[in-house]
Amino acid sequence: MPESSITENRFEKEIVSRAIDQFGCDRENLLPVLGFIRDEHRYLSIEIMREVASRFNMSSAEVYGVASFYHFLPTEPRGKNLISVCKTIVCDMHGRADVVAVIQDMLKINFDQTTADSNFSLQAVNCIGCCDEAPAMLINDKPYTKLDATRTREILKRYYP
């Protein structure tokens, strides 16, 4: 990355601007801004983080430092639909392994991977607060509970392109 090639990055500028128009660019607005960008762009790219740094007058390392602390602010490309399977003990006790097996069989991906068509990414997360209806997962923001192999298969199909 030669230093002279500081590119225009019109796309990044536009998306960061929209986030800042909505939330502001004082430091306490950083998480809302990063969250907005994640919703729009699925992840925080290098150029987006640089643009955020410039607008917040921080170093890009600080932006990355903050993003990398939080589970839901990815800095690597992600698929359109993010499947977050709860891995905490109660889900584990109630058949989480079957659910994961079905997902992996259907999508042919492992944890922290994205399908070739970029439609799904899969991650394991800590307790999502659905233990009374375990096992559970989130697809994007929506919780799905009382999962078993059949139900998981049926739910996943709804998200097929």
Binding site: I46, Y64, G65, S68, F69
Partner: peptide, 15 residues
Amino acid sequence: DVFGRGSNMKISTFM
């Protein structure tokens, strides 16, 4: 800066 957390926490550079 500090990146990641828990057992993955480390000190490094931007990305």
